[in-house]
Design a protein around this nucleic acid. Structure first.
Lengths: 374, 374
DNA sequence: TTGTACGCGTTATCAA
DNA sequence: TTGATAACGCGTACAA
């Protein structure tokens, strides 16, 4: 008996037809019902606690009212912030957010199908890590759904949203330069990854602007995690001469790098300044507290939602007959129309850079003037 | 033209009826179609890339195929691990996971209604923080949906899943005792919270078992975050005499506590040993690396999913007429049938303790023998 | 100003 | 061995 009230329950109690109830409750402006009827319908609906059934709506409107977000690893604080932004924006837009993780989807074809192929979501956001499967899965998803890459360059014809990584790197490196450093190393993430390259570009630009040397042995790239940062820093500290400061392309990597310096007996910041891109709550409590450049990651998530909702996600290519059974390889290679010169600014294009708010320098204890200058 | 293929598309191409296709594809054992027909249907379905429409299924079966998970803050590494476990279990069970966050739901009645009242999810998991709104919202949700509390005692008649916090605390404190500490302080979380109390109980039990003093001024409780840990540790260090070791009820709190010790010039572990409950990837890289007790948080999430799927979530009380419009307070107080003696073990009951795998001690650098004993 | 009828894509029941 | 048909709950075109 106590099943959820439906439109017809309301209709019965209010002694009108279902359709009228539907129109009144959905605020149809063209409906010109008697005020008293409207009143009554609203009252009954409230009294019954009526709420439209999501699935029925989805079926009728062929819109799920949900968006999907795929991240590579929830416990990465960077991803967490993206999730938070997306979550808030989705909620604000009356949508719900469906979370999934990339390795899972890569390993489990059913999971992928369940997320992408059943019409449960109206659009998909993908925060990848540069693994091979990312491109593959995104390409497949984009054939079925409006899709947008988060924190990446456009790839495989899928539009992408990213932050101004180059500016962030520049800001960081220029902070070091401003303190008097002239020997600055670079610790990146996964070699070849968009993010690494863009931040490296910013690093290079800053050095060149100030006529500082670029030494290949001071550029180390490993992976986007702390152990990689540890290894990279160890390698960097083994160079001779060694840099007096290091720019680390990611805060997670920097956590490992800092540990490596500590283990090597190199005091930060006294003997080595360290600065990283992105902020995380815990680094402020570290020893030393890490100086970082904060980027609006939450906006990244929020903007991705907006993009999808405004219909600017990857258009599902018409005529692309469905993908067939899970099957194999297929159409991997696609041109990368947005790869070259990224259109900048919030406008349409396929590669959108979120340049606002600009990167923000959070000076804490891991940077100082180089030894000779103190 | 290229809309998603439906059952009837498959039926047409295979020259059979929709219903037959439905039964064949869903593996109905009672269907005894010709092998060749079955074959053909499967082929056509694969060829067309047919996948059942989620909303239609949900409507027909009145089951959404989705579960909701509410956490208080995604960027908390503890929550992240719960999310990961729930996510994996949901996926494995062919369900999707819908993520939401508690403060958002508390602030936005529409968001709450959207999540809970529209039949989008078949069950709800709630990892609260002990805020007042948690109980209120959970009680409302439980009236409409199978609901389970995660990491909590049962409250408001809603069943709950938790870890063996007492054992974890015991293990931690006994490690300190084993190292020779006899003066051990306690830094908790939000006063009155389940978690704080249970871990405090473990702390007390360990002390009493070893005839160690319990000093009220060595018990400090503030909140579940790093700044609170900072304040708490500062308070603890101001006592005289001060403890030689501190048990911190949560790793996030411990991050702040460690920073406070550092700022106070108290060397960890030389002058003060610190140990905390829960592990997080970054504390291993800290200075000092934090000794922790790991609990199977991912299993907590996974088990919550299992509970909901097996129908052991809070039964929706029959006859409870719907809640009415968002409206106000209403029925807050309910008995707390599970509050007293918690039934232990994996069985039915309303308060389930996940005692397996048991808490695991991860000895790192933040604990050592007390000064006099070295 | 309001009601009837249809279809969204499935699954389940019944009939053939 | 297979097919027709009726729901599930909603929104909307059309009729009254």
């Amino acid at each position: 008996m106590s099943r959820r009230p439906s439109l017809s329950d309301v209709a019965k109690r209010a002694e009108v037809s279902v359709s009228l109830v539907s129109r009144i409750l959905s605020g149809d402006t063209t409906v010109r019902a008697r005020p008293e009827t409207q009143q009554r319908v609203h009252e009954v609906a409230a009294q019954l606690g009526y709420q439209p059934h999501g699935a029925a709506r989805a079926l009728r409107l062929s819109r799920a009212g949900a968006l999907g977000l795929v991240v590579h690893e929830v416990s990465n604080p960077i991803h967490a912030e993206i999730i938070r932004g997306a979550q808030a924006a989705a909620t604000a837009a009356g949508q719900v957010l469906l979370l999934s993780d990339a390795p899972e989807l890569a390993a489990n074809a059913d999971a992928f199908a369940q997320l992408v192929g059943t019409g449960r979501i109206d659009g998909l956001m993908w925060q990848g890590s540069g693994e091979d499967y990312d491109d593959e899965l995104v390409a497949r998803a984009a054939r079925q759904l409006p899709t947008v890459l988060v924190n990446s360059r456009p790839r495989a014809g899928v539009p992408a949203l990213r932050l101004d990584d180059e500016a962030a790197a520049r800001l960081a490196v220029e902070h070091l330069i401003g303190q008097g450093h002239r020997h600055i190393g670079y610790v990146g993430g996964r070699p070849g990854a968009d993010l690494t390259e863009r931040r490296y570009a910013g690093y290079l630009a800053a050095l060149r602007d100030h006529d500082l040397p670029v030494r290949p042995e001071w550029t180390v790239e490993r992976e986007w995690d702390a152990p990689a940062g540890h290894a990279a820093m160890a390698a960097l500290l083994a160079t001779d001469p060694r840099p007096t400061a290091v720019f680390v392309a990611n805060v997670v990597v920097a956590v490992g790098a800092l540990a490596a310096a500590r283990e090597a007996g190199v005091a930060v910041p006294e003997q080595l300044s360290v600065i990283a891109v992105h902020d995380a709550w815990f680094v402020a409590h570290g020893a030393p507290p890490l100086t970082t450049v904060r980027l609006p990651l939450d906006r990244l998530g929020a903007e991705a939602v907006r993009l999808l909702l405004s219909g600017e996600g990857s258009p599902v290519p018409a005529g692309t007959a469905a993908d067939g059974a899970a099957g194999g390889g297929g159409s991997a290679a696609m041109g990368d129309p947005g790869g070259g010169g990224d259109p900048v600014g919030g406008s349409a294009g396929r590669g959108i850079v979120l340049a606002d708010p600009p990167p923000q320098l959070l000076v804490r204890g891991s940077t100082t003037r180089p030894e000779g200058m103190r």
